[in-house]
Amino acid sequence: MFKFILKRLGIAIPTLLILIVFSFTLMHSAPGGPFTSERPLPPQVLANIEAKYGLDQPFYKQVTNYIVGIVTKGDFGPSFKYKDRTVNDIIAQGFPVTLKYGIWSFIIAVSVGISLGTVAAIKHNSITDYFAVGFSIGAQVLPNFVMAPILVIIFTLWLGWLPGGGWNGGQWQYLIMPVIALSTSYMASIARIMRSSMLEVLNSNYIRTAKAKGLSNRQIIFKHALKPALLPVITYLGPAFVGMITGSVVIDMYFSTGGIGQMFVNSALNRDYSVIMGITILIGVLTIAFNLVVDILYAWIDPKIRY
């Protein structure tokens, strides 16, 4: 097990380095420096500013400085557009918001998805089953950027129950629509995966044995069927996590919740390179770390995996 974790780390760390170097190179090769503006600065001023941000140093030194800054101090450097703020300030402001509705969406997508899939499999070919199948097919074409405006039409324009956007410290009224919009399509995918793997497990020989032994349905499901049926869902958690983080950009933009997604798009439109990079790398770290956890979890649950 320990060796397996080490091996996975051995892939994760170079991946991160590649991501950092790649995005830094991209940023560096961008036409026009970060301080190119409509009205050119006097050369002396420009030289001073570049010296302050370390842009006068050779490229390899800038990269190593950047990486060392991140690794030793967790410092992503200053923002190029807001002179008095660092990238860390900006992330620290937006991240808790994203985290809050992100965690809620994740919990709801996983728990509702698994329950729905299980119930659909147990009541195979019943109305519940058809509903689950219909829902999981329909939600394929309802990604977050389609769900969000539809929710606003229903709950804000027609019913007038919920505010059409904003955050307001994360009160529940402001939380509902972002969470539904973000979780729906993943909930549907999890339900679909769970349903088909549960059906497969329920048709297997050892479940028949359990039935023959006279166990109650509840015991069969919870004690024998649930754990093996969960394995494919666990594999899907990695992609779902990435999808939700990516989707948070749409949620932030559409509902003006003020999470890192909003900062990301605003800096993309403003060409605030250091903020874009900082957020990209942060997301990269989160993604890779999450995938690592999922892999370990998988290896731990599934006795068939040899590592």
Partner: peptide, 12 residues
Amino acid sequence: SIPYMFVLILLL
């Protein structure tokens, strides 16, 4: 394992 949407936006 790279969050491609962000890299894609960076590229754009």
